[in-house]
Simulated scan of single mutants.
Amino acid sequence: MPTTKTLREGSTRKRAAILSAARELFLADGFDRSSVDAIAARAEVSKRTVYDYFGDKQTLLRAVVDAVGESMISTVRRTLDETLTGLTDRTEAAGLEDALVTFSMRIATDMLGSAEYATLQRLVRAESRNLPHRGYNTMADTPDEALAERLAALAAAGLLHVPDPRLAADQFIALTFGVALDRLGSANAVEDARVRPLVVEGVRTFLRAYRTA
């Protein structure tokens, strides 16, 4: 069971070094074969420091998964800011479609095609029994909620009719990345050129349901 003792916040540099070392060893050797001694040696800290910062190896694994997930959430928020901000009711229909496709393709390359995403998927699949519950993923609903907020903003600008922003976000994801995952087994646009046509058609289907007249 993860530790319940009070942990030290400690040095940001040392914490990052421990997380990086643990991530590398968990991916290379697996959780069970990665010792705290080996993690400490790679991070160039003492074994005591690892325990002081994280308490035990299971808590450290969860911290690694959380750190990767937080990095990906930052990617989602940055992409939303760069692609779906500043649109107004004067935006032409084609402009809104292009913006949503651009957002989707950026997610399919910058996130779903990233080493961070591959790392998260590998850790969650391989080490599920050592995580708090099956399918544990620190990202949880955060990206969906961030997209829902942006869709609500587009509705406020008069571009969309979105009675339930979270439902609209879930449907947008299902129509774009979800279709690619179901049909191709991946939504990684870097590796598979078939992803883009599916994303484009998904965006168009979404707009037929939600675009204002």
Rank of each mutant, 00 (worst) to 15 (best):
S74G: 15
T138K: 14
M111W: 01
V64W: 07
A21F: 02
A41N: 06
D141G: 07
E44N: 06
R125N: 12
Y136M: 14
M105F: 05
D98S: 11
G86H: 08
R77T: 14
S34T: 12
T88D: 14
F103K: 01
S114C: 04
R122C: 06
N130E: 11
R125G: 08
T85Q: 14
A22L: 08
T88R: 13
R33L: 12
S104I: 03
R13Y: 01
L25I: 05
D81F: 06
D110S: 12
R106N: 14
T102I: 03
V68T: 14
A146Q: 14
I73F: 05
A40N: 05
T138M: 13
I107Q: 10
Y117Q: 12
L120T: 04
Q121W: 00
L123R: 03
N137T: 04
T91F: 10
L112P: 00
K57E: 01
Q58N: 12
R8F: 03
L123G: 04
A28I: 00
R134N: 10
G30Q: 05
K14L: 12
A108M: 05
V50E: 08
A41D: 10
S71G: 14
L25W: 02
A21Q: 03
S71R: 15
M139Y: 08
L96F: 10
T142S: 12
G55D: 05
V36T: 15
V68C: 10
R62D: 10
S114T: 02
V65M: 07
L96P: 06
T59P: 00
T142E: 15
S128N: 12
R106D: 13
L100C: 06
S114G: 05
A118S: 14
E116H: 14
T91P: 10
E82R: 10
R62T: 15
A126N: 13
L120H: 13
S20L: 11
V76L: 10
D32S: 12
R15V: 01
T88N: 11
R8D: 09
A63E: 13
H133N: 04
T12C: 10
F26A: 07
D32L: 13
D141E: 13
A22I: 03
R15K: 15
V101G: 02
A115G: 08
V64N: 08
D29M: 10
F26R: 05
A146K: 06
D32N: 09
A108I: 01
F31T: 01
T109Y: 01
A140Q: 12
Q58H: 14
A17M: 07
A67L: 06
D141F: 06
V101I: 11
T79P: 02
D110C: 08
T88A: 13
Y51C: 01
